[in-house]
Amino acid sequence: MSHSAHIPSHRKPRRSASKLALRAGVAGGVLGTIAVAGAAGPASADPVTETIEMPTLGSLGTGTGLASAVAASAEASQQEALDQNLRSLENAAVLNASKEATKAKAEADRKAAAERAEKARLKAEQERRAAEEAAERASRSRARTQLATVATTASDDGGSSSSGGSSSDGGSGASTGEERSQAPSGSAAAIVAFARAQVGDSYVTGGTGPNSWDCSGLVQAAYRQAGIDLPRISYEQSSMGTSVSLGNLQPGDILYWGSRSGSYHVAIYVGGGKYVGAQNSSTGVVERSLDWDPPSGAVRIL
Score class of each variant (00 low, 15 high):
A71T: 15
A81K: 00
Q126R: 07
A92N: 02
K103S: 15
L82N: 10
A143Y: 04
R142T: 08
K123R: 11
A76N: 05
A74R: 11
T64R: 14
V70Y: 06
D109K: 04
R142E: 12
S88F: 03
G63M: 03
R116T: 06
E90H: 06
S139M: 13
Q78W: 02
E133G: 01
L82M: 13
Q84V: 13
A138F: 02
D109Q: 08
S139R: 15
S141T: 12
E90L: 14
V94C: 06
K99F: 08
E127P: 03
S139Q: 12
E133W: 12
E115S: 05
A97V: 07
V94M: 10
A106N: 09
Q126N: 03
Q84I: 12
L82F: 02
D83P: 00
Q79N: 07
A104C: 01
R110M: 06
A117D: 06
A117S: 13
K123H: 03
S141H: 06
A130M: 00
A113C: 02
A101D: 14
T102K: 14
L66W: 10
R140E: 00
A130L: 04
E115G: 01
A134N: 00
A74L: 12
A120M: 08
A93H: 06
N91M: 10
K111Q: 14
E90D: 11
E100M: 09
S77W: 03
E107W: 02
S88H: 04
E100C: 03
A120W: 01
R116M: 06
R137K: 10
L89Q: 15
E115M: 07
G61K: 11
A124R: 13
A92K: 01
A113R: 06
R116N: 04
Q84A: 15
V94H: 14
A71F: 05
A113K: 11
E118M: 14
L122R: 01
A71V: 09
L60P: 01
A117E: 09
R128T: 12
A134Q: 07
V94R: 15
